[in-house]
Write a protein that binds this DNA or RNA. Structure first.
Lengths: 210, 210
DNA sequence: TACCAATATGTACTCAGTACATCTACACTG
DNA sequence: CAGTGTAGATGTACTGAGTACATATTGGTA
């Protein structure tokens, strides 16, 4: 929390908009809430909303930087005896066993996922974020073994892992919906992650990533 | 070509819009052409444009059904001694050796790719198409081995393969730009496809897909 | 030929997003 | 501590995609 009042006020305004928007999106779905309504509900001017969130979607996806940072950190400070791909597999296992957002199947994460699914625009933004993550992962993987930032092998590894996580995510949520059993859903998630990771290791065999 | 004049005229109108739009998008970039301009240039009403192409992007991506059909066909009539994933690998090799669109590095395909890259909206639509292809591939893979349409293994295989093709596509175009050598670019493409396919096979080992 | 229905088109609207100007309040300096 | 520069909040006016709904036109067909 910055000490100067100016920054604090800015943060507070941003937070107020974000909280209000999030609630409205979940209640009435993304497409049935206008920016004007959000501005009014948050008691700020319409332009203030766009000042903080250039795109309407940004009000909903507001924590992506944390995920990026986590990936970068995990690879940067990895045990050098464990190759990058395995490091990421271990990371996902650790996240699942803790209460990680998105994959803990709490009411909160389910509501999040449902809200995204109900809006084609949010789905589109989720796809974009996925590609941004693949980009970040490509760079972090390259850096972790001292190669060029756009190393094709790192690119392939990142693509395979992101695809794996995406499939695991979708299938796990599917499983949860059918069984209402988060233990089972998590098992599905990990099984698919392990399979996909195995594939990534095979694809990258002979490189420092595997 | 349908015989009744009505269908022929409808097709002709659609084609006229498509051709004009394609030319304008490539000349001036997607975002710098308005639907009004397209309508005027094609000598039709603005509403006629939306009648044929609900989204502006649809005027540019107008051949996706062919790709979907190709994937479905390849898996439907595959040699039953060759597993699905290998069938798809062979398909990509065959496409590359022929003059396949998108990956022949002709002036036409390069202009296509550049036009997409210059517009965030077209990139977003390309992502969407990728996901639609993954969906189609999931179903076609499942069907090819007689499993449920949403079989998780098929989903994983489709995800891994689409990721592989995407990475191969990007890296190959990158290579072409640096070398202006389509032979080299195609080699990069195939090498990455082979690596990714190897990974997919490893991930799906023990299933009928590999 | 007359009618039905598919297709083309017009009108009027909504809403996200942008450009640009203005106003307000915090922070910093002399 | 008064004065001033600037970041942040806000207003106005606009663009352009997309939608809802009405209307006109034209080919197929009884």
């Amino acid at each position: 929390m910055p000490s100067d009042r100016r920054s604090r006020k800015r943060l507070a305004t941003r937070r107020a908009i974000s909280v209000v928007a999030d609630r409205l999106f979940r209640e009435r779905s993304f497409d049935n809430v206008t920016v004007d309504e959000i501005a009014t509900a948050a008691d700020v001017g319409r332009m203030t909303v766009f000042n903080h969130f250039p795109r309407k979607e940004d009000m909903f996806f507001d924590r992506e930087e944390e995920v990026r940072a986590m990936l970068r950190e995990a690879l940067r400070q990895r045990d050098s005896r464990i190759p990058p791909i395995e490091t990421l597999r271990l990371l996902t296992h650790r996240l699942i066993s803790e209460k990680a957002p998105y994959v803990d199947f709490s009411a909160e994460s389910r509501s999040f996922v449902e809200t995204v699914e109900r809006s084609e625009r949010l789905v589109a933004r989720a796809r974009e974020i996925r590609d941004e993550l693949a980009q970040v992962l490509t760079e972090a993987l390259s850096a972790s073994v001292g190669r060029e930032p756009a190393d094709p092998d790192a690119h392939l590894a990142a693509g395979l892992l992101l695809a794996t996580w995406t499939v695991a995510f979708i299938q796990a949520h599917q499983t949860f919906r059918q069984s209402r059993n988060s233990k089972k859903a998590k098992a599905v998630f990990l099984a698919l992650v392990d399979k996909g990771t195995l594939g990534a290791k095979a694809a990258l065999a002979g490189t420092p990533y595997a």
